[in-house]
Design a protein around this nucleic acid. Structure first.
Lengths: 149, 149
DNA sequence: CATCATGCTACTTATGATGTTGCGAAACTG
DNA sequence: CAGTTTCGCAACATCATAAGTAGCATGATG
């Protein structure tokens, strides 16, 4: 199944913003992610609604962090990008009548709920500043194809 | 994001087969699940390849369990239906060059790996017989819309 | 041989993330 | 004020995948 890349993208962007003076335009961000400016705006809109970033129109405008990376957790961002269902497998429909199906879905739900709670706990314990510190120790300043910090 | 219902469906079917005398045809199974016979065959083929069920062509043929429910775990079935990626979120692409992206993906991967290990452990500890015993205590024999056991 | 059922291939449909285009609104520049 | 920049938004197009559909071949039963 195809995966939702919005969480990963937004984390990436936000950390770049944390090390960036001034606003970043959707255009610049899109080039960094090899993505589309409109898609960036679309996703960033969710973060703005939650108060994590702010946007400014017009010349010199763009996106800026509304709070430091230390005060943003993975859980915050996960929720802001729409809190997509974490799991790619699950019941196809919701418990019509068959008791066997109810038992199956109940069992699956138990297991997935436990895993989701674990994920949320981990997500809530990691700030973007933590991630930013977790750089691989390659020494270089990020001279990759794109994305020069 | 749309979820993969194959695991849930197959668990449902297998437990029915465990309480059923003789073979079940794809047609009957499809009616039970309100699904399509061809889709059933498609998914059951994976289970057959793993030796969990067997199929017989022709008159009186159909699908039968190749081993008792006690010897089938959720993990077995999960793998047999193609072992789809459990998670609906994840990195959209694989670590091109930017160290920040690598840090993000590395962190996410850690968390997801831990959750996946938990899921696999739980899956491996539950047999289909366990699920079959977990019937809701409604007392009725399953007189739902479809799926009379 | 007729019927039933799986096996398989190719095609269509449905859904959701993503990409694209166009136009409007706001803010800065000269 | 005119022009440029940049977000905001809506209406599409694209793409991948699960699911549905149709047709024909194969094998088993009677």
């Amino acid at each position: 199944m195809r995966q939702d890349g919005r969480l990963s993208r937004m984390l990436h962007v936000l950390i770049h913003m944390g090390r960036h003076e001034g606003a970043m335009t959707s255009e610049v961000i899109a080039q960094m992610l090899d993505a589309n400016p409109v898609v960036i705006r679309r996703t960033m809109a969710g973060l703005r609604d939650e108060g994590y970033v702010s946007s400014v129109k017009g010349h010199g405008g763009g996106w800026t962090l509304a709070r430091p990376l230390e005060e943003l957790t993975l859980l915050d961002i996960y929720r802001a990008v729409g809190e997509p269902s974490i799991f790619a497998v699950g019941p196809a429909y919701d418990m019509p009548g068959c008791p066997i199906e109810q038992a199956v879905n109940g069992t699956l739900k138990e297991v997935f709920t436990e895993a989701e709670e674990l994920l949320r706990k981990r997500f809530s314990g990691v700030t973007l500043a933590d991630v930013a510190r977790a750089f691989p120790r390659t020494g270089d300043q990020g001279g990759g194809q794109r994305c020069a910090p």
